[in-house]
Design a protein around this nucleic acid. Structure first.
Length: 748
DNA sequence: TAGTAAACTTAGCAGTTCTTGA
DNA sequence: TCAAGAACTGCTAAGTTTACTA
């Protein structure tokens, strides 16, 4: 596996990485006041990035630094104040340097097609601009936006041109005639796409399903404070149940969780409760906890009929609220239920864990649908916050949550046209990257030698993103989320440099918490120039200073956009994941393997990608036990095999003596039984191997989000493996487009 | 143009459902 | 038929990118 991705050996050989890779439970990276410290530090050190170090360790480094001084020196007299300020000046430079014909074009106004005006809307401070877009004409902005969009759309259309155009009559005008037709599989990928930036023309749905109202505890379930029974007000009791339910969870032992919970709980208490309940340690929620456990048991113990009734009720709800009509087609909605209230479960060391996630009500809800549809009714006696008709977005319902103040959405299922098209387009962009990746690699290698620090940093970061499939690494607001990083936000403390390690030269050790506070640990040999650059970037910095202090994701993506239309940092992840799968499949599949072994090969290829992308999972709680069970099955099967072999032998001997038809048949039957057992044993052994190799790796994420499904479909066709062995029903629905269009010779 | 909000994708966990085999 | 455990699904947090405002 080299070809497009010559460094893949490093990528998939994640062995050392995974052995000690696990989730950090402890706060490994204290990053409090990091920014402030950094700024202080920066003014202390002045132009530390560029000034000569008195400690002249490496001649070539000194030479490089000398060059830097010539380029940046005088300008750097400003003593590296704030990174933000630096970035401002940097951006100016980026503009000037445009050299490949992608500089911002001068654009002419285009008439805005404005047929989805918002109705009169009570403007809220937060989201009024959505309304403005529709109701106000802003020539300058719209001019640029439109042109950008047009350009983008043109590229997208290039990317995913339908194989054949087969417009269904009446589709374009978007009326709701198809409402209850049991739809045959709709091949949206064979139809033309809208080119005006609109996501739909007609949209009708029933709105969200709200969480059921709070059902108070029965009187016999008591809460105790300081050993004494205490009846709580319904508001306080509801929040107490949120905590009580979670008693068995690790969360409730964490200080931050308890502190946040208690603070928010007190807000729900009445004056009397507030006065009495002053210490969480004195609260006894055990009866509440037992109650919910019993509820859960009772649910499991329901009779078949009761379970069936529940299932039918769920199905009814799904049929009513789980679908919408979008442009003549009935499409499945992904999440039609509003998130119920509860305690916020942030991942890692999240500063807001335990806070009360409040109940979302109709007055918090914005409905998005088309003007000419039947708008969903709010529950009796309530009102929606707003009903809007914005066909430039894909969501049906939105609301703002109270923990981070971010917006949550109800959107369509991955099997829908709107999601499928986007997915398809994502892989097409990655395929375009494949065509020019060598040029980009040559360029960033060249940039490692640049006289400008910012360009070197950009080039090294891009190398990591490409080689190691790191995420972009946006800046995050401190104190709002767990301290996690990606490539651009790496700090000095996250890497260690070894000029020589285990017989390899220029080794970089990465150790940081990434998305979801999943640890990324990897030791990789890098090119000498990268190594020297890293030494330079780290010089005179404290451990909590940014490694790439002259880079952020927006600068990086702007640069990438200039190199290839539609290119962003995450395209590299998609590209490298897909190309790795394709190469690994070629490498691992052999024609003479049986189907079981072929599927193992597929899973191994998938695993290589999951390792590359650092998709880890916690060791399943029952792993050891289920492994033991499997091993026991294998042992039993082996015994059976010995017996079966013996049977065959004796029946053969018997047949030799008797020479009759009956004993001949008996030999055949024994042989068949032996074959069956051999086959069963082989399958069990493969299963054990697969499970063992997979214990801490999650395959699903890459399969669903990073691997061009056409590669898998083509592989299935080539080796005559049923696609059902690779994709389950849901996945097949999501990838229907790929299953329809990929032939066995498909190449990513 | 920088900062921020909005939109959308990616992510692991946990609860539920399905499958298997005794 | 039932229990165990594997597989699937839903949920929602946490990212990235894009769009918009000041």
């Amino acid at each position: 596996m080299s070809g497009d991705h010559s460094h893949n050996e490093d990528q998939i050989d994640g062995g050392s990485r995974f052995n000690d890779s696990h989730k950090h439970k402890d706060k490994q990276h204290k990053h409090k006041d990091h920014k402030k410290d950094k700024e202080r530090e920066k003014s202390k050190h002045g132009n530390s990035d560029h000034k000569d170090s008195s400690d002249k360790k490496h001649r070539d480094k000194e030479k490089e630094k000398e060059k830097m001084k010539h380029k940046d020196g005088s300008a750097d007299k400003h003593k590296d104040k704030h990174k933000e300020k630096k970035m401002k000046s940097l951006d100016g430079k980026v503009k000037k340097e445009k050299e490949n014909g992608f500089a911002s074009p001068q654009v002419k106004p285009e008439p805005e097609e404005d047929f989805y005006h918002s109705p009169k809307i009570e403007k809220t401070l937060k989201r009024e601009r959505d309304v403005d877009i529709d109701s106000e004409f802003k020539p300058k902005k719209l001019k640029i936006e439109n042109d950008k969009k047009v350009k983008k759309r043109k590229q997208e259309d290039e990317d995913i041109k339908p194989k054949k155009t087969r417009n269904k009559p009446g589709v374009a005008d978007g009326k709701k005639k198809a409402k209850n037709e049991p739809e045959e599989k709709w091949k949206w990928w064979e139809e033309e796409r809208a080119t005006d930036g609109s996501k739909w023309k007609f949209l009708e749905h029933r709105g969200p399903v709200f969480a059921p109202p709070y059902d108070p505890l029965p009187n016999n379930i008591r809460f105790f404070y300081d050993g004494k029974q205490m009846k709580l007000s319904p508001e306080a009791e509801e929040v107490a149940t949120f905590f009580g339910k979670m008693l068995d969870h690790d969360y409730t032992t964490k200080d931050i969780f308890r502190k946040n919970f208690f603070k928010d709980w007190k807000k729900e208490m009445n004056a009397e409760e507030k006065g009495k309940i002053t210490d969480l340690k004195k609260c006894n929620f055990s009866e509440i906890n037992d109650y919910f456990k019993a509820q859960s048991e009772a649910r499991k113990a329901k009779t078949k009929d009761q379970k069936l009734k529940l299932k039918e009720e769920n199905e009814r709800l799904l049929q009513e609220y789980g679908f919408c009509i979008m442009d003549n087609h009935r499409e499945r909605i992904a999440n039609f239920r509003i998130e119920p209230p509860g305690l916020f479960r942030g991942r890692g060391d999240h500063p807001k864990m335990g806070m009360l996630k409040r109940r979302t009500r109709p007055k918090d809800i914005i409905i998005n649908c088309s003007k000419d549809s039947k708008h969903p009714d709010p529950p009796p006696g309530t009102k929606w916050k707003e009903v809007r008709h914005d066909n430039k977005v894909t969501w049906l319902v939105s609301w703002t949550e109270n923990i981070q103040g971010s917006i949550k959405y109800i959107m369509l299922n991955p099997s829908s046209r709107i999601k499928g098209e986007k997915d398809w387009q994502k892989y097409e962009t990655a395929r375009r990257l494949k065509k020019c990746v060598e040029r980009l690699r040559t360029q960033y290698r060249e940039d490692w030698k640049s006289k400008e620090m910012r360009i070197r940093q950009r080039a090294v970061a891009l190398y990591f993103i490409d080689k190691l499939a790191l995420r972009a690494g946006n800046e995050k607001e401190e104190g709002e989320t767990a301290d996690t990083v990606g490539c651009c936000s790496l700090r000095v403390e996250h890497i260690k440099l070894y000029p020589e390690n285990d017989g390899q030269e220029f080794v970089v050790e990465f150790d940081f918490l990434g998305k979801d506070s999943i640890r990324y640990y990897n030791k990789v040999p890098v090119e000498k120039r990268v190594f020297k650059n890293l030494q330079l970037f780290m010089e005179n910095k404290e451990k909590d200073d940014d490694l790439f202090d002259r880079l952020n994701t927006s600068v990086l993506n702007k640069h990438l956009q200039e190199l290839m239309d539609g290119l962003t940092a995450k395209v590299f992840r998609t590209f490298n994941a897909s190309i790795t799968l394709q190469q690994q499949l070629v490498h691992l599949t052999s024609a003479d393997e049986n189907p079981t072994a072929k599927i193992l090969s597929y899973n191994r290829a998938n695993r290589a990608v999951a390792i590359l992308c650092n998709h880890q999972r916690a060791l399943p709680k029952t792993f050891e036990k289920s492994m033991q069970n499997l091993q026991a099955k294998i042992d039993t099967k082996r015994d059976q095999l010995v017996d079966a072999k013996r049977d065959v032998k004796s029946s053969k001997a018997d047949a030799k003596v008797r020479r009759d038809e009956k004993s001949k048949k008996s030999v055949e039957a024994k042989k068949k039984a032996l074959e069956r057992i051999e086959d069963q044993l082989m399958k069990l052994e493969v299963q054990a191997t697969d499970r063992e190799e997979n214990k801490q790796i999650a395959l699903g994420t890459s399969k669903l989000n990073y691997l061009d499904p056409r590669i898998s479909v083509a592989w299935c066709k080539k080796w005559d493996i049923p696609v059902e062995k690779i994709y389950n029903k849901t996945q097949r629905e999501k990838f229907a487009w790929a299953m329809d269009m990929a032939e066995e010779d498909y190449e990513f």
